[in-house]
Design a protein around this nucleic acid. Structure first.
Lengths: 224, 224, 224, 224
DNA sequence: GATGAATGAGCGTTCATTCAT
DNA sequence: AATGAATGAACGCTCATTCAT
């Protein structure tokens, strides 16, 4: 299933950026190269200075688009979750079976977005989400950022999947807890499989991760 | 249940520190104050300079104990997991019921260690584990550090709990995946409850978190 | 004594500005908001960027009116001295007594201009003169700026008051020295009274400052 | 009158510096070269980076001695006023005549300290005091700095000269006002003589400045 | 005439680390 | 073993200014 959705534009809260990077060639270069640079050297070592050098522009120009590297990471994660949201909606568009919808959602979360994206390399973005996205909220300023709505896209996807689950079992009370556990779980397991294999159970089966979590969800909500 | 286990000494891989901080007053001061400082300003802003200033010593002295702030975080997390391991063993010592053992383990993971600890404030350590511990492995050098065994204590706890679960259902194939998902899940949910409540389901019930995950585990492994 | 002199326009040397700010709404906004911003954050922290942001225009637009922030400060001080000059002339218009004229002049220098001024808040301008005006000449480029006449208004007021004093004692030889000492003295004493009170002698009497300096002048020139 | 007072050490409030620059060769180099660099390029253009480059050390090393360039200016001015204080005391040591003492004090204030000083070029320091010293208090943080006593040396000199004047006329009520006006006046007139001569009255007579202000003081206090 | 975008340069500061004592 | 001094390097950020529209 490969979507060529040239019409997609991410729905990202304005406060994350100073100037919309998708509205100028330089802005698009910043997010494209920034995505790659974070994957290459890690978010801690990533600086606007290095990013500017890579692009061939100046730090000052980067600051025109993003207030700091943190907001930039938030932009990337919001971009990712906006894509995920969009893909789930597209894929589940004409489906009636909530279980099938849930399975689709888990599959989308468990692998890179498969779509031509002129802005960002989606494989690399997926890798960054797994490695760095939790750093966008595990910070001292989380409350302040949350207050102005900067975690909107993440919360939205949790709400979307929660709704699907509630259609399977409308009485389940801990649906948000379950969904956020599963989302974080999927991404964490991919990290563990690559780096700390004894914390997971590597398998040759394709798509075993979404299957495992699909089973986990259904078991948990049915026995409620 | 309050344990006064003055005999406890954490079992921490030597490579994490340069000189054992528990063998000198300055070393103990470093981990005691370091734990508090990270809680206060966050791991990103934490530096050996600030730590030394707080203690009233010099950066050079801190370097005598820890190679860098990263290793220091690893020390704290290892210290924590070593405590958790010890507590689980103590609590489950004479119990035969694996389900009861599992429940105990989840409860221990879900709240601060309740023990007098002259070295570290355990409430603060628990807070740091929730907020910062994932930064000890979500880094570029994870493979290198793993190769020399620096994640031993974390892996050990996963193994310990996995063994309990396998006694409930010896045929369950994804036990490490399940356990690491649950451990990360519990800590994440506490963070979400405090900072991003729409990602969880706040409840007035005491201990609802361990209960939820206990139910999740049993459901998942029984329906296998 | 309150003058409503809507007809007043400051007589400011052209080289201080690029484009006359009083000839456009944007220009008037620049001097109005700039005056307030300097008072708020201090001249060192004041930049055209911040000024432009406050107004809701761009740095480039500000540059159309003033070459740099230094010239802007010179504009404000010249504006102030032009007002002072005008007020002294108005107030002393029909007076014959030079001593009375001197007293009037000192009073005008010792308190904010009391006049409706649609361009600038005169209270704030007075505050800026006290705090910042000496920075308009205590700079490396003073000779260069002086050569093109940018300190005209300040020199003019010294000359005007010197002339009054010379009518009291035509033989006094150090009149400019005396006048510039007194003018700077009055403004400095107001600063000291607010911030370094041990350098002055605070008093409850109204207008003690002009009185003190009036006495100082008369004593100095009479005993010559 | 030339004093070779190798025993002099300035009495400077500790909070002005981080580490006493007179206690190490590097520290002494910093104040020696810093003094010269400010004279050369002006305080606004003066930065720790340029200072470090001139000395052949690094910014970080300069920060070990002074928190910021502002504190450095405060150090220079405090050093100057401490010297002035010391000189006045030495010169007036065995004198009984308060008028003679006043005259001496004014002469000392009106020209560079004439003493061998291995730390600082006193000619250049005098030049800096005239051009830059008022910037040490005409700032937003003046109250905060004053609260911790950083203007001690300036206030002390005003008190010292005030005491002399009160011995001439114990009933004069505005002595601090008069003294601070005169001190600022002397330095300002030197600046005006060099740069804005129409604000002063240049004269060929030696020492005309102290003489003028001596006359001004006596006239003012006698006619009280 | 006014604005938006971009940029070269440099600032103040802090960092991790080393060396000598 | 612990400390004090020093330093190279880089960070995050802002500045003044210019250019194209």
């Amino acid at each position: 299933m490969h979507l060529s959705l040239s019409s997609f534009t991410p729905n990202i809260v304005h406060d994350i950026y100073v100037k919309n990077p998708l509205q100028s060639p330089l802005g698009m270069e910043i997010i494209r190269v920034g995505n790659e640079l974070i994957a290459e050297i890690g978010f801690e070592a990533f600086t606007f200075r290095k990013l500017a050098a890579q692009i061939g522009t100046t730090e000052a120009s980067v600051y025109r688009y993003f207030e700091n590297k943190h907001k930039f990471l938030l932009y990337l994660t919001s971009y990712y979750w906006s894509w995920v949201e969009y893909h789930i909606l597209m894929r589940n568009n004409n489906l009636l079976d909530a279980c099938r919808q849930l399975k689709n959602a888990l599959e989308i979360i468990g692998s890179p977005i498969k779509a031509d994206d002129k802005n960002l390399n989606q494989e690399i973005l997926f890798y960054n989400i797994i490695n760095e996205s939790s750093k966008s909220y595990l910070i001292k300023s989380v409350d302040e950022l949350n207050k102005v709505g900067l975690y909107y896209n993440y919360k939205k996807i949790v709400a979307t999947i929660s709704d699907i689950i509630l259609r399977i079992n409308p009485d389940f009370k801990y649906v948000h807890m379950l969904v956020s556990t599963v989302i974080e779980g999927i991404h964490h397991q991919i990290f563990f499989a690559n780096h700390l294999p004894s914390l997971t159970d590597t398998d040759t089966e394709e798509n075993y991760l979404p299957d495992f979590y699909y089973h986990l969800i259904l078991s948990t909500i049915k026995n409620d």
